[in-house]
């Protein structure tokens, strides 16, 4: 068998290596460039840094207020993600195990939510938030994050919970447990694999979100990392060294986050998240 597949395995190794290089080379180039002053990046874009020029990091961290942005990003990502996953699970439970007719309609409404771009709701949303007095607050950012996270997460939760045998909850109900007890004591423990997948996906999305936080906030003290990074990179700022350093600061935590949790992602999907 091994012999027969030599050609195939060479080809497949090549494919794997191509993809790997496509990931490693740009990221390495980004990290190396972050340690070069602007002039060197422009003159010799390919050269290895002559010395480890860390001023880029110090300057972009202080000038770009990345410290406070970092804290905000962490708050938004954790709080919004936790609530999204929780609401999605409870909705998923209701939609998959209660067999009311309205479930179908509500599921469809959530599916349509997948198609809505942030831009088409941003103006009405801003008007609403200012009238409510929650624009420019952390709550004002977290609520839309949850709403935009829900469609995909409800979908994941519903399909997963559908796959859990009915017998488990039915016997508990017969024994006199309430639906809430079933949800907290039986469902959530069983759903752990999908919960970690949902958590990671939502977290990544929230961490990288840009447009909502930019429009709905104005104070530096409530803005998040992508806004900070974009101010280096979005406009006419021409210091590529600072730009690369900001990119590294925004990217590396997520790469580490992923490396720590990567097995959970695979587990979650293996648990049947995306199977009809």
């Amino acid at each position: 068998m091994r012999k027969r597949l030599t050609l195939a395995s060479v080809l497949s190794s090549m494919l794997m290596i191509t993809f790997t290089l496509l990931t490693i080379i740009p990221l390495t180039w980004m990290i190396l460039s972050a340690f070069k002053p602007h002039a060197m990046i422009v003159r010799t874009p390919l050269a290895f840094p002559m010395s480890w020029y860390v001023d880029n990091f110090i300057l972009s961290w202080t000038q770009g207020h990345l410290g406070i942005y970092f804290i905000n990003s962490t708050i938004y990502s954790f709080v919004a993600t936790f609530l999204t996953v929780f609401f999605a699970l409870s909705s998923g439970y209701a939609l998959s195990k209660f067999s009311y007719k309205s479930s179908r309609v509500i599921s469809m409404v959530y599916t349509l939510g997948l198609l809505i771009t942030v831009h088409s709701v941003i103006v009405p949303l801003f008007i609403m938030e200012t009238k409510l007095g929650i624009s420019n607050t952390r709550i004002g950012v977290i609520l839309p994050y949850i709403a935009f996270g829900l469609p995909f997460q409800v979908f994941l939760a519903t399909t997963y919970i559908k796959g859990i045998p009915d017998a488990m909850q039915e016997s508990a109900i017969i024994d006199g447990a309430t639906f809430f007890q079933v949800f907290f004591k039986i469902l959530i423990p069983v759903a752990t694999p999908i919960i970690s997948t949902m958590f990671i996906y939502t977290f990544l999305g929230n961490w990288n979100e840009f447009i909502l936080v930019l429009t709905l906030t104005s104070d530096l003290s409530v803005r998040s990392l992508p806004v900070g990074i974009n101010s280096f990179a979005g406009g006419m700022s021409r210091d590529y060294g600072l730009q690369f350093a900001a990119l590294v600061i925004g990217t590396v935590p997520m790469i580490l986050f992923y490396l720590v949790f990567k097995d959970k992602i695979a587990q979650g999907f293996a648990a049947g998240a995306l199977k009809e």
């Binding site: 200012t130 624009s135 429009t215 974009n230």
Partner: peptide, 14 residues
């Protein structure tokens, strides 16, 4: 982004 935000603020009377 400056103009997007300005516009949103103007439309919402803020």
């Amino acid at each position: 982004a400056f103009h997007d935000k300005l516009q949103t603020m103007a439309m919402s009377g803020q």
